[in-house]
Amino acid sequence: MKKETLSLEFTVYDSEKELSSEDAALLSRARQAREDAYAPYSKFKVGAAVLMENGEIVVGNNQENASYPSGLCAERVAVFQAGAIYPGLAIQKIAIAAGSERNPLAKPAAPCGNCRQSIFEYENNQKKPIELLLMGASGEVYKCPSIQGLLPLAFGNEYL
């Protein structure tokens, strides 16, 4: 028998003021996108901003639906839109800003499993890591060097 250990590497910043100007600007775009989210049921708004390798930024926000499974998370809205607008271009970073009217001081929220898998598909295909910046309503920012850190033992196209 052999035991393996999986670990998560990320950096915690006390606030976005500690970030580089590029990261702070990307997170600002994610916060702006969060404000326009359609979340009438959960009141949990999420905005995402994707930085492409050509310097363009693509945003998305969560879109809820009374039939809950029909909604879509901010991360997938942004990543799929980026893939549609800039096919073949690598995604460098994704900033995600989440906040709830019920819990405005929440810590950063990581992407759900479906979003992690969708982001991994892009990271795996482009063979370059996609850095993530995660922020709640305010306060700390988590910086992850790759989606693989949040999705160990990921399922990729090499299995098909």
Results as ranks from 00 to 15, higher is better:
125 N>I: 06
137 A>Y: 04
136 G>C: 02
137 A>N: 05
109 A>T: 08
139 G>K: 09
132 L>V: 10
105 L>N: 15
130 I>K: 05
138 S>A: 06
128 K>L: 08
104 P>F: 10
122 Y>L: 12
135 M>S: 14
119 I>E: 02
144 C>P: 00
126 Q>A: 06
141 V>Y: 09
113 G>I: 04
110 A>W: 13
119 I>Y: 01
137 A>M: 05
141 V>T: 10
123 E>F: 06
112 C>F: 05
126 Q>K: 06
112 C>Y: 09
135 M>P: 02
115 C>W: 00
126 Q>R: 06
115 C>R: 08
110 A>F: 15
115 C>Q: 09
118 S>H: 12
145 P>G: 09
130 I>M: 12
111 P>Q: 05
116 R>Q: 07
109 A>Q: 13
122 Y>T: 15
137 A>K: 03
127 K>R: 14
108 P>E: 11
137 A>V: 02
131 E>H: 03
143 K>E: 07
112 C>E: 06
133 L>V: 10
111 P>C: 13
108 P>H: 06
143 K>C: 04
108 P>Q: 12
120 F>R: 01
138 S>T: 05
119 I>D: 04
116 R>N: 07
139 G>D: 08
117 Q>F: 03
116 R>F: 00
120 F>M: 13
124 N>P: 00
122 Y>H: 11
131 E>W: 01
123 E>W: 04
115 C>K: 12
119 I>V: 15
108 P>Y: 05
116 R>E: 01
139 G>I: 11
119 I>P: 09
121 E>L: 07
109 A>Y: 03
138 S>V: 01
